[in-house]
């Protein structure tokens, strides 16, 4: 059902483009581009990490002999590509990008006299936004645009702990909690594009996206090493993406 909605939406967009083109007799331009950029806190784990850090710091402060190291909220590099079609004052854009924190998102705590519990968080997000934008053209391949649309997300969050302490369940007591899911969300897009060479242009874009999965089953391992599928959790893809791109215009 979820996929049917996406197909229906794509067909609707294509139909709209075809109809509108026929009516306006406009000849637009296609371009393909590659993007790179940055995001902060992919999959929106910041609040959870900050809260865990507060517990770790308080634990270290109030338990003689306890140690703890806080977890960083990660930045992530982005890599992606996009396909754009624009004519008159409209821009249609389909893109895909992938974000994964480069540096390890790690922390730990050690109970007094106990073994160290190393915590690692691994996360990634692949997003496929389909956007319609209003375009303010200055001249050929020089324009400012803003719009929005739907986004299809594939996202994963994995939390592993080497020696979880049931007496201090800062991020649960499982050795591994792993959640992977795909779902749709929406986004807002603002960008500008200027010419670079004959058929090339440079773009700067900001995407603010919102998305929340339904409850995803755990593909994890409990403290005793047994496979588990609870607790479920939602993945929240709310975030902001800064994208710099180079685009190549295809002559039709």
């Amino acid at each position: 059902m979820k996929h049917l909605k996406i197909y229906f939406f794509i067909i609707l967009i294509i139909a709209f483009v075809c109809c509108y083109t026929e009516v306006s007799y406009a000849i637009g331009e296609f371009s393909i581009g590659i993007n790179t950029g940055m995001t902060y806190d992919p999959n929106n784990l910041g609040d959870e990490i900050s809260r865990a850090n507060q517990y770790i710091a308080d634990y270290r402060e109030n338990n003689t002999g306890a140690e703890g190291e806080e977890i960083n909220v990660p930045y992530a590099l982005l890599l992606g590509c996009n396909l754009k079609y624009h004519f008159n004052y409209l821009l249609f854009r389909f893109a895909g990008y992938f974000a994964k924190p480069g540096a390890g998102v790690e922390g730990s705590y050690t109970p007094p006299g106990g073994p160290e519990n190393e915590i690692k968080i691994s996360t990634y997000q692949a997003s496929f936004p389909l956007s319609i934008a209003f375009l303010l053209p200055l001249k050929e391949r020089t324009f400012f645009y803003f719009g929005g649309g739907m986004t299809y997300h594939i996202a994963s969050v994995k939390i592993t702990q080497s020696n979880p302490d049931p007496a201090f369940p800062v991020l649960g007591t499982d050795r591994m909690d792993k959640y992977t899911g795909s779902f749709t969300g929406w986004h807002l897009l603002v960008g500008a594009e200027v010419p670079l060479l004959d058929k090339y242009s440079i773009s700067v874009e900001w995407i603010h996206q919102e998305g929340r999965s339904s409850s995803i089953s755990n593909d994890g391992i409990d403290i005793n090493g047994n496979g588990i599928n609870t607790p479920g959790r939602q993945i929240n893809t709310r975030g902001d993406f800064i994208l710099f791109g180079i685009n190549y215009y295809i002559s039709i």
Binding site: L136, F143, F144, S203, V204, E205, W206, I242
Partner: peptide
């Protein structure tokens, strides 16, 4: 931040920059 700035007509500019 770095970005692009587009002049519209003679009396307006719109810029988008990120950093």
């Amino acid at each position: 931040t770095a970005g692009v700035c587009i002049p519209f007509w003679n009396d307006a500019k719109i810029s988008v920059s990120c950093g």
